[in-house]
Design a protein around this nucleic acid. Sequence first.
DNA 1: CGGAATATACCCGTTAACACGTAGATTTTA
DNA 2: TAAAATCTACGTGTTAACGGGTATATTCCG
Lengths: 212, 212
Amino acid sequence: MKDKIRIAIVDDHQIVIDGLHSLLSNDPSIEIACSSTSAQEIFQMLQKNKVDILLTDIMMEPMNGVTLAKKVHEEYPLIKVLALSMSGAGDMVDEMIRNDSIQGYVLKNIGKQELLQAIQKIANGGIYYSDEVLISLEKENDRQKQSDHIKFTAREIEIIRLIERENNNKQIAGELFISERTVETHRKNIFRKLDSNSVIGLIKYAYEHKLI
Amino acid sequence: MKDKIRIAIVDDHQIVIDGLHSLLSNDPSIEIACSSTSAQEIFQMLQKNKVDILLTDIMMEPMNGVTLAKKVHEEYPLIKVLALSMSGAGDMVDEMIRNDSIQGYVLKNIGKQELLQAIQKIANGGIYYSDEVLISLEKENDRQKQSDHIKFTAREIEIIRLIERENNNKQIAGELFISERTVETHRKNIFRKLDSNSVIGLIKYAYEHKLI
DNA sequence: CGGAATATACCCGTTAACACGTAGATTTTA
DNA sequence: TAAAATCTACGTGTTAACGGGTATATTCCG
Protein backbone atom coordinates (compact mmCIF):
# COMPACT_ATOMS: atom_id res chain seq x y z
CA MET A 1 0.00 0.00 0.00
CA LYS A 2 1.24 3.42 -0.96
CA ASP A 3 1.76 6.24 1.46
CA LYS A 4 -1.13 8.55 1.97
CA ILE A 5 -1.15 11.83 0.10
CA ARG A 6 -0.38 14.53 2.64
CA ILE A 7 -2.36 17.69 2.11
CA ALA A 8 -2.17 21.23 3.49
CA ILE A 9 -5.16 23.53 3.23
CA VAL A 10 -5.25 27.30 3.30
CA ASP A 11 -8.33 29.43 2.82
CA ASP A 12 -9.56 32.69 4.28
CA HIS A 13 -12.77 31.04 5.37
CA GLN A 14 -12.66 28.54 8.16
CA ILE A 15 -15.84 26.94 6.93
CA VAL A 16 -14.26 26.08 3.62
CA ILE A 17 -11.33 24.55 5.43
CA ASP A 18 -13.60 22.54 7.69
CA GLY A 19 -15.55 21.52 4.63
CA LEU A 20 -12.57 20.39 2.65
CA HIS A 21 -11.24 18.72 5.75
CA SER A 22 -14.17 16.44 6.38
CA LEU A 23 -14.61 16.01 2.66
CA LEU A 24 -11.12 14.68 2.17
CA SER A 25 -10.43 12.98 5.47
CA ASN A 26 -13.00 10.32 4.64
CA ASP A 27 -10.83 9.19 1.78
CA PRO A 28 -8.37 6.48 2.83
CA SER A 29 -5.67 7.62 0.45
CA ILE A 30 -5.54 11.15 1.81
CA GLU A 31 -4.27 12.66 5.00
CA ILE A 32 -4.67 16.28 6.07
CA ALA A 33 -1.29 17.41 7.36
CA CYS A 34 -2.17 20.94 8.38
CA SER A 35 -4.43 23.86 7.62
CA SER A 36 -4.74 27.57 8.31
CA THR A 37 -6.67 30.69 7.41
CA SER A 38 -3.42 32.59 6.95
CA ALA A 39 -1.04 32.30 4.03
CA GLN A 40 1.81 33.46 6.20
CA GLU A 41 1.10 30.82 8.77
CA ILE A 42 0.76 27.93 6.38
CA PHE A 43 4.03 28.90 4.76
CA GLN A 44 5.77 28.44 8.07
CA MET A 45 3.91 25.23 8.77
CA LEU A 46 5.34 23.74 5.61
CA GLN A 47 8.77 23.76 7.21
CA LYS A 48 7.77 21.36 9.92
CA ASN A 49 5.17 19.27 8.13
CA LYS A 50 5.85 16.95 5.27
CA VAL A 51 3.32 17.95 2.66
CA ASP A 52 2.71 16.66 -0.84
CA ILE A 53 -0.02 18.99 -2.03
CA LEU A 54 -0.99 22.48 -0.94
CA LEU A 55 -4.63 23.32 -1.50
CA THR A 56 -4.92 27.08 -1.62
CA ASP A 57 -7.56 29.68 -2.27
CA ILE A 58 -6.67 32.36 -4.79
CA MET A 59 -8.40 35.40 -3.40
CA MET A 60 -7.06 35.96 0.06
CA GLU A 61 -6.05 38.91 2.19
CA PRO A 62 -3.43 40.08 2.72
CA MET A 63 -1.25 37.61 0.85
CA ASN A 64 -3.04 36.19 -2.13
CA GLY A 65 -2.75 32.66 -3.42
CA VAL A 66 -0.64 33.67 -6.37
CA THR A 67 2.10 35.08 -4.24
CA LEU A 68 1.91 32.16 -1.86
CA ALA A 69 2.14 29.66 -4.69
CA LYS A 70 5.19 31.37 -6.07
CA LYS A 71 6.92 31.47 -2.71
CA VAL A 72 6.11 27.84 -2.04
CA HIS A 73 7.38 26.81 -5.43
CA GLU A 74 10.68 28.55 -4.75
CA GLU A 75 11.13 27.37 -1.20
CA TYR A 76 9.68 23.87 -1.43
CA PRO A 77 9.85 22.80 -5.07
CA LEU A 78 8.59 19.30 -4.24
CA ILE A 79 5.24 20.56 -2.98
CA LYS A 80 2.53 20.63 -5.60
CA VAL A 81 -0.01 23.41 -5.50
CA LEU A 82 -3.69 23.05 -6.34
CA ALA A 83 -5.41 26.42 -6.59
CA LEU A 84 -9.06 26.86 -5.68
CA SER A 85 -11.03 29.81 -6.88
CA MET A 86 -14.51 31.23 -6.62
CA SER A 87 -14.47 32.52 -10.15
CA GLY A 88 -12.34 31.78 -13.15
CA ALA A 89 -10.41 34.98 -12.70
CA GLY A 90 -7.97 34.78 -15.54
CA ASP A 91 -5.24 37.33 -15.19
CA MET A 92 -3.16 36.00 -12.38
CA VAL A 93 -3.63 32.37 -13.24
CA ASP A 94 -2.01 32.90 -16.57
CA GLU A 95 1.19 33.84 -14.86
CA MET A 96 1.10 30.93 -12.46
CA ILE A 97 0.60 28.39 -15.18
CA ARG A 98 3.51 29.73 -17.14
CA ASN A 99 5.99 29.73 -14.31
CA ASP A 100 5.04 26.29 -13.05
CA SER A 101 4.12 27.52 -9.61
CA ILE A 102 0.84 25.62 -9.67
CA GLN A 103 0.00 22.14 -10.90
CA GLY A 104 -3.74 22.53 -10.88
CA TYR A 105 -6.58 25.00 -10.82
CA VAL A 106 -10.21 24.25 -10.06
CA LEU A 107 -13.30 26.29 -9.33
CA LYS A 108 -15.05 25.93 -6.04
CA ASN A 109 -18.21 24.82 -7.77
CA ILE A 110 -16.70 21.44 -8.57
CA GLY A 111 -17.97 18.33 -6.81
CA LYS A 112 -16.25 16.01 -4.42
CA GLN A 113 -15.47 13.46 -7.09
CA GLU A 114 -13.70 15.90 -9.33
CA LEU A 115 -11.69 17.29 -6.48
CA LEU A 116 -10.45 13.85 -5.49
CA GLN A 117 -9.66 13.13 -9.09
CA ALA A 118 -7.67 16.33 -9.36
CA ILE A 119 -5.71 15.55 -6.21
CA GLN A 120 -4.93 12.03 -7.33
CA LYS A 121 -3.74 13.20 -10.69
CA ILE A 122 -1.53 15.90 -9.28
CA ALA A 123 -0.11 13.56 -6.66
CA ASN A 124 1.03 11.29 -9.47
CA GLY A 125 2.92 14.11 -11.11
CA GLY A 126 0.12 15.23 -13.37
CA ILE A 127 -1.57 18.51 -13.99
CA TYR A 128 -5.24 19.28 -13.61
CA TYR A 129 -7.35 22.19 -14.79
CA SER A 130 -11.13 22.46 -14.74
CA ASP A 131 -12.70 22.79 -18.13
CA GLU A 132 -14.22 26.08 -17.07
CA VAL A 133 -10.81 27.40 -16.20
CA LEU A 134 -9.34 26.44 -19.54
CA ILE A 135 -12.25 28.01 -21.37
CA SER A 136 -12.04 31.19 -19.37
CA LEU A 137 -8.30 31.31 -19.94
CA GLU A 138 -8.81 31.02 -23.64
CA LYS A 139 -11.35 33.80 -23.61
CA GLU A 140 -8.95 35.92 -21.62
CA ASN A 141 -6.28 35.31 -24.21
CA ASP A 142 -8.58 36.23 -27.07
CA ARG A 143 -9.69 39.34 -25.29
CA GLN A 144 -6.14 40.44 -24.70
CA LYS A 145 -5.02 39.73 -28.21
CA GLN A 146 -7.72 41.58 -30.06
CA SER A 147 -8.70 44.32 -27.64
CA ASP A 148 -5.90 46.73 -26.99
CA HIS A 149 -2.55 47.68 -28.26
CA ILE A 150 -1.57 48.20 -24.65
CA LYS A 151 -0.50 44.96 -23.05
CA PHE A 152 0.31 44.97 -19.38
CA THR A 153 2.14 42.01 -17.99
CA ALA A 154 0.60 39.96 -15.19
CA ARG A 155 2.97 41.55 -12.72
CA GLU A 156 2.08 45.03 -13.88
CA ILE A 157 -1.61 44.32 -13.44
CA GLU A 158 -0.95 43.11 -9.92
CA ILE A 159 0.78 46.39 -9.22
CA ILE A 160 -1.96 48.46 -10.82
CA ARG A 161 -4.46 46.81 -8.53
CA LEU A 162 -2.37 47.56 -5.50
CA ILE A 163 -2.05 51.17 -6.62
CA GLU A 164 -5.80 51.38 -6.97
CA ARG A 165 -6.13 50.21 -3.39
CA GLU A 166 -4.16 53.23 -2.28
CA ASN A 167 -0.93 51.45 -1.49
CA ASN A 168 2.24 53.44 -1.89
CA ASN A 169 5.38 51.98 -3.40
CA LYS A 170 6.75 50.83 -0.09
CA GLN A 171 3.57 48.95 0.76
CA ILE A 172 3.44 47.36 -2.67
CA ALA A 173 7.04 46.28 -2.32
CA GLY A 174 6.23 44.71 1.04
CA GLU A 175 3.18 42.98 -0.30
CA LEU A 176 4.96 41.44 -3.27
CA PHE A 177 8.24 40.75 -1.54
CA ILE A 178 10.25 42.80 -4.00
CA SER A 179 12.36 45.93 -3.72
CA GLU A 180 10.87 49.39 -3.73
CA ARG A 181 13.12 50.15 -6.70
CA THR A 182 11.53 47.36 -8.63
CA VAL A 183 8.11 48.73 -7.94
CA GLU A 184 9.28 52.09 -9.19
CA THR A 185 10.51 50.47 -12.37
CA HIS A 186 7.22 48.66 -12.91
CA ARG A 187 5.41 51.90 -12.30
CA LYS A 188 7.60 53.66 -14.83
CA ASN A 189 6.89 51.00 -17.41
CA ILE A 190 3.17 51.15 -16.71
CA PHE A 191 3.07 54.90 -17.24
CA ARG A 192 5.25 54.60 -20.31
CA LYS A 193 2.83 52.10 -21.84
CA LEU A 194 -0.12 54.24 -20.86
CA ASP A 195 1.55 57.32 -22.26
CA SER A 196 0.51 59.21 -19.18
CA ASN A 197 2.06 60.20 -15.94
CA SER A 198 -0.86 60.60 -13.62
CA VAL A 199 -2.25 58.03 -11.24
CA ILE A 200 -5.70 59.31 -12.00
CA GLY A 201 -5.38 58.47 -15.66
CA LEU A 202 -4.20 55.03 -14.68
CA ILE A 203 -7.14 54.43 -12.38
CA LYS A 204 -9.63 55.56 -14.97
CA TYR A 205 -8.00 53.37 -17.59
CA ALA A 206 -8.04 50.41 -15.23
CA TYR A 207 -11.74 50.84 -14.49
CA GLU A 208 -12.64 51.24 -18.14
CA HIS A 209 -10.71 48.18 -19.14
CA LYS A 210 -11.89 46.12 -16.21
CA LEU A 211 -8.43 45.57 -14.89
CA ILE A 212 -9.92 45.90 -11.43
CA MET B 1 -35.67 12.75 22.15
CA LYS B 2 -36.47 15.74 20.05
CA ASP B 3 -36.80 15.68 16.32
CA LYS B 4 -33.72 16.46 14.34
CA ILE B 5 -33.29 19.93 12.95
CA ARG B 6 -33.92 19.69 9.22
CA ILE B 7 -31.63 21.85 7.16
CA ALA B 8 -31.56 22.95 3.54
CA ILE B 9 -28.34 24.25 2.02
CA VAL B 10 -27.90 26.50 -0.97
CA ASP B 11 -24.62 27.88 -2.23
CA ASP B 12 -23.14 28.62 -5.62
CA HIS B 13 -20.16 26.49 -4.87
CA GLN B 14 -20.62 22.77 -4.67
CA ILE B 15 -17.54 22.45 -2.54
CA VAL B 16 -19.04 24.64 0.13
CA ILE B 17 -22.20 22.57 0.07
CA ASP B 18 -20.23 19.35 0.33
CA GLY B 19 -18.25 20.92 3.10
CA LEU B 20 -21.24 22.05 5.10
CA HIS B 21 -22.86 18.73 4.44
CA SER B 22 -20.19 16.54 5.92
CA LEU B 23 -19.63 19.15 8.59
CA LEU B 24 -23.20 19.05 9.80
CA SER B 25 -24.23 15.49 9.05
CA ASN B 26 -21.90 14.27 11.77
CA ASP B 27 -24.00 16.01 14.32
CA PRO B 28 -26.77 13.76 15.70
CA SER B 29 -29.21 16.62 16.19
CA ILE B 30 -29.08 17.72 12.57
CA GLU B 31 -30.36 16.29 9.37
CA ILE B 32 -29.68 17.64 5.88
CA ALA B 33 -33.00 17.66 4.08
CA CYS B 34 -31.83 18.94 0.72
CA SER B 35 -29.27 21.10 -1.00
CA SER B 36 -28.64 22.81 -4.30
CA THR B 37 -26.39 25.22 -6.13
CA SER B 38 -29.41 27.08 -7.43
CA ALA B 39 -31.67 29.41 -5.49
CA GLN B 40 -34.54 28.70 -7.87
CA GLU B 41 -34.22 25.00 -7.37
CA ILE B 42 -34.01 25.09 -3.60
CA PHE B 43 -37.08 27.27 -3.49
CA GLN B 44 -39.06 24.56 -5.25
CA MET B 45 -37.56 21.87 -3.09
CA LEU B 46 -38.92 23.60 -0.02
CA GLN B 47 -42.44 22.70 -1.15
CA LYS B 48 -41.81 19.01 -0.92
CA ASN B 49 -39.32 18.85 1.91
CA LYS B 50 -40.04 19.72 5.47
CA VAL B 51 -37.28 22.15 6.40
CA ASP B 52 -36.60 24.04 9.61
CA ILE B 53 -33.62 26.12 8.64
CA LEU B 54 -32.38 27.32 5.27
CA LEU B 55 -28.65 27.89 5.09
CA THR B 56 -28.00 30.28 2.24
CA ASP B 57 -25.09 32.11 0.73
CA ILE B 58 -25.59 35.81 0.16
CA MET B 59 -23.65 36.38 -3.01
CA MET B 60 -25.16 34.14 -5.65
CA GLU B 61 -25.98 34.35 -9.32
CA PRO B 62 -28.53 34.88 -10.69
CA MET B 63 -30.83 35.09 -7.66
CA ASN B 64 -28.97 36.37 -4.64
CA GLY B 65 -29.50 35.29 -1.09
CA VAL B 66 -31.34 38.44 -0.14
CA THR B 67 -34.06 37.92 -2.70
CA LEU B 68 -34.29 34.27 -1.83
CA ALA B 69 -34.61 35.00 1.87
CA LYS B 70 -37.37 37.47 1.23
CA LYS B 71 -39.30 35.06 -0.97
CA VAL B 72 -38.90 32.23 1.49
CA HIS B 73 -40.07 34.40 4.35
CA GLU B 74 -43.23 35.25 2.42
CA GLU B 75 -43.98 31.79 1.14
CA TYR B 76 -42.86 29.67 4.07
CA PRO B 77 -42.92 31.88 7.16
CA LEU B 78 -42.05 28.97 9.44
CA ILE B 79 -38.65 28.39 7.80
CA LYS B 80 -35.81 30.20 9.48
CA VAL B 81 -33.01 31.57 7.34
CA LEU B 82 -29.35 31.63 8.29
CA ALA B 83 -27.30 33.70 5.88
CA LEU B 84 -23.68 32.90 5.10
CA SER B 85 -21.34 35.43 3.62
CA MET B 86 -17.78 35.71 2.48
CA SER B 87 -17.43 39.26 3.63
CA GLY B 88 -19.38 41.40 6.03
CA ALA B 89 -20.98 43.22 3.11
CA GLY B 90 -23.24 45.63 4.88
CA ASP B 91 -25.69 47.13 2.45
CA MET B 92 -28.09 44.29 1.82
CA VAL B 93 -27.99 42.81 5.28
CA ASP B 94 -29.32 45.90 6.89
CA GLU B 95 -32.53 45.53 4.97
CA MET B 96 -32.94 41.86 5.75
CA ILE B 97 -32.50 42.34 9.43
CA ARG B 98 -35.13 45.02 9.50
CA ASN B 99 -37.81 43.09 7.66
CA ASP B 100 -37.26 39.88 9.61
CA SER B 101 -36.46 37.83 6.53
CA ILE B 102 -33.40 36.34 8.18
CA GLN B 103 -32.82 35.04 11.68
CA GLY B 104 -29.06 34.87 11.51
CA TYR B 105 -26.00 36.04 9.67
CA VAL B 106 -22.52 34.60 9.92
CA LEU B 107 -19.28 34.96 7.98
CA LYS B 108 -17.74 31.99 6.30
CA ASN B 109 -14.64 32.36 8.37
CA ILE B 110 -16.42 31.06 11.44
CA GLY B 111 -15.56 27.68 12.84
CA LYS B 112 -17.61 24.51 13.10
CA GLN B 113 -18.49 25.11 16.72
CA GLU B 114 -19.89 28.54 16.14
CA LEU B 115 -21.92 27.35 13.19
CA LEU B 116 -23.54 24.59 15.21
CA GLN B 117 -24.19 27.05 17.99
CA ALA B 118 -25.85 29.43 15.57
CA ILE B 119 -28.06 26.69 14.15
CA GLN B 120 -29.12 25.47 17.57
CA LYS B 121 -29.98 28.94 18.70
CA ILE B 122 -32.01 29.73 15.61
CA ALA B 123 -33.80 26.40 15.76
CA ASN B 124 -34.97 27.34 19.24
CA GLY B 125 -36.46 30.54 17.97
CA GLY B 126 -33.45 32.70 18.64
CA ILE B 127 -31.42 35.04 16.51
CA TYR B 128 -27.72 34.80 15.83
CA TYR B 129 -25.27 37.30 14.36
CA SER B 130 -21.49 37.01 14.29
CA ASP B 131 -19.68 39.68 16.20
CA GLU B 132 -17.86 40.67 13.04
CA VAL B 133 -21.16 41.20 11.30
CA LEU B 134 -22.47 43.42 14.05
CA ILE B 135 -19.28 45.43 14.10
CA SER B 136 -19.24 45.82 10.35
CA LEU B 137 -22.88 46.83 10.38
CA GLU B 138 -22.15 49.46 12.94
CA LYS B 139 -19.26 50.76 10.90
CA GLU B 140 -21.46 50.84 7.85
CA ASN B 141 -23.99 52.89 9.75
CA ASP B 142 -21.37 55.28 11.03
CA ARG B 143 -19.90 55.59 7.58
CA GLN B 144 -23.25 56.41 6.04
CA LYS B 145 -24.14 58.88 8.71
CA GLN B 146 -20.75 60.52 8.51
CA SER B 147 -20.32 60.46 4.77
CA ASP B 148 -23.64 62.12 4.27
CA HIS B 149 -22.34 64.79 6.58
CA ILE B 150 -19.47 65.61 4.28
CA LYS B 151 -20.42 68.78 2.56
CA PHE B 152 -18.03 70.18 0.01
CA THR B 153 -18.37 73.82 -0.88
CA ALA B 154 -19.03 74.84 -4.47
CA ARG B 155 -15.44 75.92 -4.86
CA GLU B 156 -14.16 72.63 -3.52
CA ILE B 157 -16.28 70.68 -5.97
CA GLU B 158 -14.90 72.77 -8.81
CA ILE B 159 -11.44 71.86 -7.68
CA ILE B 160 -12.24 68.18 -7.26
CA ARG B 161 -13.43 68.09 -10.86
CA LEU B 162 -10.26 69.73 -12.07
CA ILE B 163 -8.23 67.24 -10.09
CA GLU B 164 -10.16 64.41 -11.70
CA ARG B 165 -9.26 65.81 -15.11
CA GLU B 166 -5.62 65.35 -14.23
CA ASN B 167 -4.78 68.99 -13.65
CA ASN B 168 -2.02 69.74 -11.20
CA ASN B 169 -2.23 72.55 -8.70
CA LYS B 170 -0.59 75.07 -11.02
CA GLN B 171 -3.05 74.34 -13.80
CA ILE B 172 -5.99 74.55 -11.44
CA ALA B 173 -4.72 77.86 -10.13
CA GLY B 174 -4.47 79.15 -13.68
CA GLU B 175 -7.90 77.90 -14.59
CA LEU B 176 -9.59 79.52 -11.61
CA PHE B 177 -7.44 82.66 -11.54
CA ILE B 178 -6.34 82.06 -7.97
CA SER B 179 -3.00 81.42 -6.33
CA GLU B 180 -1.42 78.02 -6.25
CA ARG B 181 -1.32 78.40 -2.48
CA THR B 182 -5.05 78.78 -2.41
CA VAL B 183 -5.46 75.61 -4.40
CA GLU B 184 -3.23 73.86 -1.91
CA THR B 185 -5.40 75.09 0.92
CA HIS B 186 -8.57 73.92 -0.77
CA ARG B 187 -6.94 70.60 -1.41
CA LYS B 188 -5.96 70.36 2.22
CA ASN B 189 -9.51 71.07 3.32
CA ILE B 190 -10.92 68.54 0.89
CA PHE B 191 -8.69 65.79 2.19
CA ARG B 192 -9.38 66.81 5.76
CA LYS B 193 -13.11 66.48 5.17
CA LEU B 194 -12.63 63.16 3.41
CA ASP B 195 -10.37 61.92 6.18
CA SER B 196 -7.99 60.61 3.58
CA ASN B 197 -4.83 61.78 1.89
CA SER B 198 -4.81 59.97 -1.40
CA VAL B 199 -6.03 61.27 -4.71
CA ILE B 200 -7.27 57.83 -5.56
CA GLY B 201 -9.57 57.79 -2.58
CA LEU B 202 -10.85 61.18 -3.62
CA ILE B 203 -11.56 60.07 -7.17
CA LYS B 204 -13.35 56.96 -6.03
CA TYR B 205 -15.41 58.99 -3.58
CA ALA B 206 -16.25 61.49 -6.26
CA TYR B 207 -17.43 58.79 -8.64
CA GLU B 208 -19.47 57.04 -5.98
CA HIS B 209 -21.15 60.22 -4.92
CA LYS B 210 -21.64 61.47 -8.45
CA LEU B 211 -19.64 64.60 -7.91
CA ILE B 212 -18.37 64.19 -11.46
C1' DC C 1 20.25 28.72 -30.63
C1' DG C 2 19.57 33.68 -30.13
C1' DG C 3 16.85 37.68 -29.75
C1' DA C 4 12.78 39.58 -27.23
C1' DA C 5 10.27 40.08 -23.24
C1' DT C 6 10.00 40.12 -18.39
C1' DA C 7 11.20 40.80 -13.61
C1' DT C 8 14.40 42.31 -10.77
C1' DA C 9 17.37 46.30 -8.81
C1' DC C 10 20.08 50.58 -8.27
C1' DC C 11 21.68 55.74 -8.93
C1' DC C 12 20.72 60.62 -9.28
C1' DG C 13 18.25 64.71 -9.42
C1' DT C 14 13.82 67.21 -9.44
C1' DT C 15 9.42 68.49 -7.97
C1' DA C 16 4.59 68.23 -7.00
C1' DA C 17 2.13 67.16 -3.20
C1' DC C 18 1.84 66.78 0.96
C1' DA C 19 1.73 68.24 6.82
C1' DC C 20 1.03 71.89 9.96
C1' DG C 21 0.80 76.23 10.56
C1' DT C 22 -1.36 81.36 10.35
C1' DA C 23 -4.50 84.93 8.76
C1' DG C 24 -7.12 88.67 6.29
C1' DA C 25 -11.31 89.58 3.24
C1' DT C 26 -15.80 88.47 2.01
C1' DT C 27 -20.12 86.28 2.11
C1' DT C 28 -23.79 83.77 4.35
C1' DT C 29 -26.79 82.91 7.92
C1' DA C 30 -28.75 82.73 12.48
C1' DT D 1 -25.66 92.79 13.66
C1' DA D 2 -22.70 89.31 15.26
C1' DA D 3 -21.11 84.81 14.40
C1' DA D 4 -20.03 81.26 11.12
C1' DA D 5 -18.59 79.72 6.85
C1' DT D 6 -16.04 80.39 2.83
C1' DC D 7 -12.42 81.98 -0.14
C1' DT D 8 -8.30 83.77 -0.40
C1' DA D 9 -3.00 83.56 0.52
C1' DC D 10 1.55 82.70 2.50
C1' DG D 11 5.74 80.16 5.13
C1' DT D 12 8.50 76.10 6.06
C1' DG D 13 9.86 71.69 5.80
C1' DT D 14 9.42 66.77 4.23
C1' DT D 15 8.83 63.13 1.08
C1' DA D 16 6.77 60.12 -2.27
C1' DA D 17 6.75 60.00 -6.92
C1' DC D 18 8.40 61.05 -10.67
C1' DG D 19 12.03 61.35 -15.32
C1' DG D 20 16.13 59.34 -17.16
C1' DG D 21 19.35 56.39 -16.99
C1' DT D 22 21.86 51.35 -16.48
C1' DA D 23 22.10 46.44 -15.69
C1' DT D 24 21.54 41.40 -14.78
C1' DA D 25 19.17 37.02 -14.56
C1' DT D 26 15.52 34.44 -16.37
C1' DT D 27 12.12 32.99 -19.32
C1' DC D 28 9.66 32.86 -23.53
C1' DC D 29 9.31 31.99 -28.23
C1' DG D 30 10.39 31.78 -33.16
